[in-house]
Nucleic acid binder design. Structure first.
Lengths: 238, 238
DNA sequence: GCAAAAGTGTTGACTATACACCCATGC
DNA sequence: GCATGGGTGTATAGTCAACACTTTTGC
């Protein structure tokens, strides 16, 4: 491994963020409108350059704070997806991008932070063709989050500090795009120690009507044993 | 998102490889001895710079070919782990490294490719303190591979084109560090369509003694449904 | 009362585990 | 024969999906 500051062409290192949240029970992603070429007028994932004194994770959290204008992004779940480094992914120069998925509990309205001309929450299914390779990054983010719901406690990252089991179930249903059986979902969640813990005595009305639901907090566990597998589209093997 | 070639300090982008294989039933990793400061004399993961015209994946495969001196690395499994970008991870300059795990079926002896002074297969457990943050990269590689064995067909990447079910089981046992019940392992593998397919009529002696084992090839499937979960160290939940 | 949403119970089918047993080979 | 590793069978416990049912609220 030879190190020589002049032996290579400089690379730009950026971060791109797939910021996901649930709005009205549907998965949404934060997009920004590009103001300049290339892809001017197209929508893209928010992102920006990694500064010389920060890691990609730090840069991602900084960009997230700028784009969402949230007062506190320190508790949000940020997950490194992978790095996209095709030489031609940006037509102007060599840009290596470290992609992240960020999970938000509530969806504050966003209409332009400091960087972007315009920012918008877009339903995942309507996130049309995006600039650069961002369609692929977004698809990878969806796939990763969907997979991690199966065997980690990640779903609580989409929920506010106190939530009902119905809201937690909505996370699974929105990300996976399938309906789940409520009694069975409930049992699986409660059977996993440390996934959620009850808030004593607290309950809340959810849909206006119906029985008030008990409230839960995220527990200490991070992994799910056994996993909560998404239903197979067809037959379960032999 | 502003792009300006002069607005940032240049980053070096490298790849680091955790090359894993099975030797005598035990997990081994390929290490190279560093010849220069920093960490001169220490062992490190092989790696090198990403060239201006190649992606990180291409660079990783090129480095893999150089380090192992294998004639054909095109069929080997290469998996991007994550990117390590702490500002101080290399004392000399800003180096962002994209880490990969590579899985090799057989372990050719390696003693210095073109780059490294010396290369060696080291048992995973004896891979002492490594240079830079390579201990962490190696641990992340092990964790990732162990997890992917559960729900993908990755295990065949450790096996030669034709292999016995006993050899496949050894992969799981070596990576997970646990013993598995042979009859049950066999059933699970064969119950997953597309995991392995029999080589008609072929069989081979394995340990010198014992009944010759039937040979199998890797199948077309990539995902495992249902997953082959590693045994829980204790109680299976409620 | 009725609709809606939360929460509980039950049953039958499937699956996994642990273990006993048989087969083919080298020595 | 006997040790070694491959391959088959099976009984029991456990788990899961499906669905019926009860509870508590708003209207």
């Amino acid at each position: 491994m030879e190190y020589d500051k002049h032996a290579y062409e400089p690379f730009a290192v950026t971060v791109d963020l797939a910021v996901l949240t649930l709005r009205a029970g549907a998965l949404h992603v934060l997009l920004v409108e590009r103001g300049q070429e290339p892809y001017a007028g197209s929508w893209a994932l928010p992102g920006g350059f990694v500064q010389p004194d920060e890691s990609a994770e730090t840069a991602a959290r900084r960009e997230l704070a700028e784009e969402t204008a949230l007062s506190d992004v320190s508790g949000l779940h940020l997950e490194q997806l992978r790095t996209y480094s095709e030489p031609d992914r940006d037509p102007r120069m060599r840009v290596v991008s470290v992609a992240f998925a960020a999970l938000l509990p509530d969806a504050p309205e966003v209409h332009g932070g400091s960087d972007a001309a315009q920012a918008r929450w877009v339903p995942y299914d309507e996130a049309g063709p995006l600039a650069f390779d961002h369609d692929r990054i977004l698809a990878d983010a969806h796939e990763r989050v969907g997979a991690k719901l199966e065997y980690t406690c990640l779903a609580t990252a989409f929920c506010p500090p106190e939530f009902t089991l119905g809201e937690l179930q909505q996370v699974y249903e929105a990300v996976w795009g399938t309906a789940l059986d409520r009694p069975n979902f409930r049992r699986k969640v409660l059977a996993t120690p440390g996934f959620v813990e009850p808030v004593p005595g607290a309950s809340r009305l959810t849909g206006g009507r119906g029985k008030p639901a008990a409230l839960y907090r995220a527990g200490a566990a991070t992994a799910l044993h056994p996993p909560l597998l998404r239903p197979t589209p067809e037959g379960h093997s032999a």
